[in-house]
């Protein structure tokens, strides 16, 4: 059974190609737009707050509701670690990422009794065009993995039957870049 992947961009495409499950599942890639970093909060306009935070967050809420209406048993929300770490020049993007990540917990609490699991996967900021060198110092563990750290395997597991007791969690999949 194919998994419904909601979202756009390289990461969403990767997940669309690589994630399969026998369980009815939805993967929501939050539209965090790292191309729109702001030089300073003083330069942030109301229109930017709407475009970078508000509208994508409303779409996350809508996507979760859609997944529920599709009777999905597994829902995975993918965000950058920037929401947990914070990011200089990325305050509205970090707000969006963290807002979506914590909404996962609320959804898990409400929908757990229905057998629906809802989890978050936090990936390297670069998947969302966020520059980690200005979002904050994040190099914690020595990288032993080459190239991009792909979350496909983790998302596959979270969409599968064997992860049924895991809900409301955030799993960081970045090769130990941020802890």
């Amino acid at each position: 059974m194919s998994v419904s992947v909601l979202g756009q961009g390289k990461l969403a495409d990767l997940l669309r190609d690589g994630v399969y499950s026998e369980t009815r599942s939805a993967v929501i890639v939050v539209e965090v737009d790292g191309d729109r970093s702001i030089s300073s909060i003083a330069q942030l306009t109301d229109a930017q707050i709407d475009e970078i935070f508000e509208q994508p967050m409303q779409r996350v809420i809508g996507a979760l509701q859609e997944a529920h209406s599709m009777n999905c048993e597994r829902i995975v929300v993918v965000v950058p670690t920037t929401g947990m770490s914070g990011g200089a020049c990325y305050a509205p993007q970090a707000a969006l990422a963290e807002s979506a990540r914590i909404l996962v917990k609320s959804a898990a609490r409400q929908w757990g009794a229905s057998g629906i699991t809802v989890n978050a996967v936090a990936v390297e900021p670069h998947w969302f065009a966020i520059d980690p060198s200005i979002s904050g110092p994040v190099a914690i563990a020595p990288r032993s993995l080459g190239g991009d750290v792909s979350p496909v395997g983790l998302v596959n597991w979270l969409c599968g039957a064997t992860s049924g007791d895991v809900t409301g969690q955030t799993i960081v999949c970045d090769g130990g870049l941020w802890m």
Binding site: T82, G86, A91, A94, A95
Partner: peptide
């Protein structure tokens, strides 16, 4: 919760 979570991320970013 997400509204309150966003405030924490804003604080960390700033």
């Amino acid at each position: 919760s997400p509204a309150k979570a966003a405030q924490r991320a804003i604080a960390k970013s700033l």
